[in-house]
Amino acid sequence: MTSIQPPAQTIWWKQPLDRVEGTWIAIALVWSLIMFAMMPLWHVYGKQNLSNEAYRTTPEAFMAKTMAMVNEHTVRTETNQQIPVVSPPPGSDVYLIARLWQWWPILELEKGQTYRLHIASMDWQHGFSLQPVNINTQILPGYEMVLTITPDTSGDQTIICNEFCGIGHHNMVGRILVKESGT
């Protein structure tokens, strides 16, 4: 058999395996089984992936929940667009809206306290990436994503949309302010 001439027998699965080829197939099989076992183990013990919830919602229903939180817990406004800064009590549900091309409102959370963060898109698919914490999830229209978060460092955390959402995508940056408990 040469590379110019076709093989005499075209039934490839009836050809005997070479020893090296069998070794590589065995290595690939063992490695795939290891990687398959690591996915659930890393989810449980690696603390890399958040367990989250998703619920069907409408933009109107989610906006009503968010406005109720904003009206009750706004402490000030920031930026030239007068975006409200909301400081809900520890342990509460907090709401964040993704819409072309901003995150609304700015959240002010306490370090070491646990919150249920509800995120929904009002228009297109967006990506929620919280840096430097490295929380990453997709926000789909019609769904309310719920993440349980406990900020462990104080300071500004940046929210980036990492799913292309249109011409102003590069401007879709938001903030979560984490303050020391009791301040």
Rank of each mutant, 00 (worst) to 15 (best):
M145P: 00
G174W: 03
L147P: 07
V44P: 00
E144L: 00
L17D: 11
L177N: 15
M69I: 00
K111I: 04
W104H: 15
A54H: 03
D93H: 14
S154N: 04
G22Y: 05
L109Q: 12
T183M: 02
W101P: 15
P141S: 08
T158C: 01
T79H: 03
H43Q: 08
E72H: 04
A120N: 06
L117E: 09
D123E: 07
H169G: 04
S51H: 05
L177K: 15
L117R: 08
H170Y: 11
T10G: 12
P84E: 02
E78G: 03
Q157V: 02
L177M: 14
M145G: 02
Y115Q: 10
C165G: 12
Y95E: 01
N171A: 14
S87M: 08
E163P: 00
P7V: 05
W24I: 09
W101L: 06
E53R: 14
T183H: 03
Y45L: 15
E60G: 12
H43L: 11
M69R: 01
I135D: 11
W101I: 06
L100N: 15
Q81W: 05
N80Q: 04
I176H: 13
I27Y: 13
N134G: 09
M122F: 01
M145F: 01
T148V: 13
I149V: 15
I135M: 09
S32C: 11
M67N: 14
H118G: 02
M63D: 13
E180R: 13
D152A: 07
G142K: 06
R76P: 01
Q138R: 08
I119L: 13
N162R: 02
H170G: 12
V70G: 05
E180T: 13
G174K: 05
S181C: 03
R116L: 13
I149L: 12
T150W: 00
L33E: 06
T23E: 11
K111R: 15
T66Y: 03
D123T: 11
V173R: 14
E53L: 13
L117Q: 10
I159N: 06
G91M: 05
P141Q: 06
G46W: 00
T153L: 04
N136S: 12
A68C: 00
Q81L: 09
I119P: 05
T66E: 10
L130K: 08
G166C: 05
Q82Y: 03
V173I: 15
S154W: 00
P105H: 09
L29G: 15
L33D: 02
P59R: 04
G127E: 01
V44S: 08
T183R: 08
V146F: 08
M67E: 13
A37T: 14
D123F: 00
L50A: 13
S181W: 07
L107M: 10
E144M: 03
W12C: 10
S3V: 01
M39F: 07
A37F: 06
Q113I: 01
T148R: 08
E163A: 10
D93E: 14
E78P: 01
N134K: 10
K65A: 08
L33P: 03
V44L: 09
W104K: 08
A54T: 11
P40S: 09
G22T: 02
Q9M: 06
